[in-house]
Structure formats: C-alpha cells, structure tokens
Simulated assay, not measured.
Amino acid sequence: MSETEHQVIHDAQNHRFVITVDGSEAGYADYALETPENDGPAVRDFNHTVIDPAFRGRGLSAPLIRFALDDTLEANLTYRATCSAVEHFIGKNGRYADGLAGPV
C-alpha cells in the first residue's frame, strides 16, 4: 500500500479536528469545550470521531486523535474521552492518560 499524504488541522470555530488525505476531507474528531467553574483548565470533551467510509482501513484515526490530544495538551487544556475511539486510543497509548480531566 502506498503512503498517502495526510494533514490534520484544528477547526476551532466548529470545535473539531479535521484530517485530510491528498486535499480531501477524510474524517474529523468533534469536541465540546467545557469551562470549569473553578480555576482549573478548560476541558475538551472528545465526543465523536468519524472516518469517511471511502478512507477507512488506512489507519487515519490514530494520527487524527494523536494530533487532537497533542494540540489540547500544548494549549494547556485537559480532555475527556466520551468517544469510544478516543478512549481506545488513550488506552493503547498510556502517555495520554495524564491529560485526562476528572470524572464526568
């Protein structure tokens, strides 16, 4: 299988991270931004991840989720994984467990 060129961007206005392959949108990870009542950091609740059926089987969810979580940590935010794909990714990549927000 040949390597495809993919890019992930943060579409902050629509609260999602989008992955494109050779310029076509291949999927996204949606989140809800939660502002805590105390002085803690805001939380991105990753609640829905989709890879378009035409792009499935190419391993695109991992780079999409990795970029989204890395971006969240770099922004000094925490995250919640109410999406099963994000929860599974964190379970397989333990270094992301430290960025998890407290219980829902």
Rank of each mutant, 00 (worst) to 15 (best):
S61D: 06
A75L: 13
A85Q: 14
G40S: 15
E87V: 01
P41R: 14
F55I: 03
A68G: 05
H48G: 02
G102W: 08
G102Q: 13
E5W: 00
F55P: 03
E74K: 15
R56C: 00
T72Y: 02
S24M: 12
L60I: 04
A75S: 13
G94P: 11
E5L: 12
R56L: 01
T72Q: 01
G40T: 11
D39N: 13
L69H: 00
K92G: 09
F17W: 03
G59C: 09
R95N: 12
N38I: 12
G27H: 12
T4P: 05
L33K: 12
Y31L: 06
N76V: 06
E3Q: 15
H10K: 08
E25Q: 05
R56I: 01
G23D: 05
L33W: 09
P36H: 08
Y28Q: 06
C83V: 09
A42D: 09
F17Y: 10
V86A: 01
R58D: 01
A97P: 01
G57L: 03
S61P: 06
G102C: 03
E25P: 02
D39F: 14
F67S: 01
S84K: 09
V104W: 13
E5C: 03
G102L: 11
F67R: 02
A75G: 08
Y28D: 02
N14H: 15
E3F: 14
T82P: 09
D45R: 05
L60C: 00
V8R: 00
Y96L: 05
H88R: 14
A29T: 02
A12P: 05
L60M: 05
E74W: 12
H15C: 03
H15L: 02
R66P: 00
D98L: 10
A54L: 14
F46W: 08
D30I: 07
A101I: 03
V18T: 03
T82R: 06
T4C: 13
L73N: 10
D39M: 11
S24Q: 15
A101P: 04
Y79E: 09
V21W: 04
L60H: 00
V18A: 04
Q7K: 13
Y96N: 04
V104C: 08
V104K: 15
P36D: 08
L77I: 06
T82H: 10
F55Q: 07
N93L: 09
V43R: 04
R16C: 04
G94D: 15
P53T: 05
D30N: 13
A26Y: 10
A68R: 04
R66G: 03
L100A: 13
G57F: 07
H48Q: 07
Y79K: 11
I19W: 01
R16K: 07
T82G: 11
H15S: 07
S61A: 15
L60N: 02
H88N: 15
H6P: 03
V8C: 01
G102R: 12
C83P: 04
I19Y: 00
R58L: 05
F89R: 01
A12H: 11
N93Q: 12
D30Q: 13
H88I: 06
V21D: 04
H6W: 13
I51Y: 06
T4D: 10
D39Y: 08
H15W: 03
V43L: 07
A81D: 14
A75K: 14
A32V: 14
